[in-house]
Design a protein around this nucleic acid. Structure first.
Length: 514
RNA sequence: GGGCGCGUAGCUCAAUUGGCAGAGCAACUGACUCUUAAUCAGUAGGUUGAAGGUUCGAUUCCUUCCGCGCUCACCA
């Protein structure tokens, strides 16, 4: 990815010539009367006659995305806010020096122009320029004009160029911004307060994942980048913040893939005096509202499918029901609810499933609940395109959730699936410190068994619960994944501005200049 | 980490069985005062991702490495 030295040097030379014309190479500001989107919005319907009769003077700034010179006149397209407007520059109108400047402009330069609106012979709304002001130089050539930038690696590494060249990429990130806005507005309106909790933690808790490790020099202390804010947010409910949320990054030191980036954004919120069902309803509303705010309706395209986020289209089923419902025909008769009750019958279910479908690993030493969850993912996840709430999760994989009163092996926990992805996870929060201690101890046994991701003991968290945490429900929503679903992006990298890539060999500017 | 695939000019892509490394756009010079993929004439631009090997000869075949993509495993 060497820079083009020749073009760089040539354009530096042009910059000197531009300065010689009395323009500043890097001026500090430009006063404008309109933006390109505002002109297009206001004057797109005006006819040539209307524009002639009452002259509209405008002063705008933009980046040159196309330029055509014809002797003593020329056209260019300026881009601003993802939209383009044509300018017409005539020597008679801008004068000798103005036209000299125009001839020194390159694709990608920023300029300001003032003049009046008119329509060209072909009817295109344009600015008849009377004055050009140079604003900033593009020393490196932009990608070719009609194929644009398609190389996926370059798009991620040089997102700035991607954003200049590809309006649909710009749209995706505008939608992502609307999504986050919508979630904040929704929660604020429901009486939640936004907080920020530590991203560097001494115990990486609140989820099951491998953390990144970092080090603080002065304290000479290893710290983990957080894998979830959960335990801190629940400490805040102990402290009397009955409704809190945080939208921020989590870091998990795991594999990458179309649904996984090592750092990802999660919304987590907790509400006192409600349970998993209350939170389930609230989350469903939040997502439906987000879809409306982002796309103006409830239906989104998802590859070959259409997802309808309207409340009436959501389905709810328990994990056990889902396994039964999506049991592959080739695996023989569907299991029954009783089959989930013993280790032997679960083992039989797994081996029957494996004859027909993807392989579910079976480890007789692991808790039955863990096996059932693996079976669910293998059997059901790929079928869950429309928004679906799967509820009642095994206690073994839910160390922070309250158990069902009548079935202690199962918890009041749910996850939302859509587009074959898990996008949210919520539950009735376990607030019994004695029970929480037992769950952590159970997790420690899993750790000893070799599961590095099992939850660690967190004494301070148990102490916090010992001061009394109100009954509460809580939820985490994967913001990146929701953004993917709402923008029909089939890789998480398309909704993260600067996704993690391996380092590249960068040509330093010194290599280029002299 | 495993498997499959890709890497050629600034960008988008060609190159027959292993036989002189090319085109379009971008760039440069010149002409052109309503063009829009502007047009016309000309010029320049390359360690074919890197290193090694086979060969008279390698963009092409082999090995290793680097980077990217897809996929599987672990995970949200």
């Amino acid at each position: 990815m060497a820079l083009d030295e020749n073009i760089y040097k040539l354009r530096l030379e042009k910059l000197k010539q531009i300065e010689a014309l009395g323009q500043r190479a890097y001026p500090t500001k430009y006063e404008f009367t309109h933006t390109i989107p505002s002109i297009l919005a206001e004057y797109s319907q005006k006819s040539a006659e209307e524009l002639d009769q009452s002259r509209v003077n405008v002063r705008i700034a933009g980046r040159i995305m196309a330029i055509r010179l014809m002797g003593k006149a020329g056209f260019a397209h300026l881009q601003q806010g993802g939209q383009k407007l044509q300018i017409y520059v005539k020597k008679d109108a801008v004068g000798e020096k103005g036209f000299e400047l125009y001839k020194l402009l390159d694709l990608g330069d920023h300029v300001g122009v003032s003049g009046y609106l008119f329509r060209t012979r072909t009817g295109e709304l344009s600015i008849h320029v009377e004055e050009i002001t140079f604003l900033s130089k593009d020393l490196l050539p932009l990608p070719e004009k009609w194929h644009g930038l398609t190389d996926v690696e370059l798009r991620y590494r040089q997102r700035y160029v991607d954003l200049v060249m590809n309006p649909e990429v710009r749209e995706v990130f505008l939608k992502r911004s609307k999504l986050v806005q919508s979630m904040r507005r929704f929660l604020d309106a429901h009486g939640f307060i936004e907080v920020e909790t530590p991203m560097m933690q001494q115990i990486a808790g609140g989820a099951v994942a491998k953390p990144f490790i970092t080090h603080h020099n002065t304290l000479d202390m290893d710290l983990y980048l957080r894998i979830a804010p959960e335990l801190y947010l629940k400490r805040l409910t102990v402290g009397g913040f009955d409704r809190v949320y945080e939208i921020n990054r989590n870091f998990r030191n795991e594999g990458l893939g179309w649904r996984w980036n090592p750092e990802f954004t999660m919304l987590e919120f907790y509400q006192a005096y409600t349970d998993y069902r209350g939170i389930m309803d609230l989350t469903q509303q939040l997502i439906e509202q987000a879809a409306i705010d982002v796309i103006g309706g409830t239906k989104t395209k998802w590859g070959e499918h259409e997802i309808d986020w309207a409340g009436s289209n959501w389905r709810r089923m328990t994990m056990r029901e889902a396994i039964i419902h999506y049991w592959p025909e080739t695996a023989g008769p569907k299991p029954t609810m009783q089959d989930f009750n013993s280790q032997d019958s679960v083992k039989t279910m797994v081996s029957r499933f494996n004859t027909a479908h993807a392989h579910v690993a079976y480890d007789p030493n692991e808790p039955v609940g863990k096996t059932i969850a693996a079976l669910f993912e293998a059997a059901a996840e790929e079928h869950l395109t429309q928004p679906t709430i799967i509820y009642e999760f095994p206690t073994a994989i839910s160390p922070l959730s309250k158990q069902k009163a009548d079935e202690p092996d199962w918890t009041e926990r749910w996850e939302i699936y859509a587009g074959q992805m898990e996008i949210a996870n919520g539950f009735s929060e376990l607030n019994d410190p004695e029970d929480q201690r037992r769950r952590f101890e159970q997790q420690l046994k899993e750790r000893e068994r070799g599961d590095e991701e099992a939850h660690q003991m967190d004494e301070d968290y148990i102490r916090a619960l010992s001061y009394g945490m109100p009954p509460a429900g809580g939820c985490g929503v994967g913001v990146d994944r929701l953004a993917m679903l709402l923008t029909d992006s089939h890789t998480i990298r398309d909704v993260i501005l600067f996704p993690l890539l391996r380092p590249e060999k960068v040509a330093s500017p010194e290599d280029v200049k002299e």
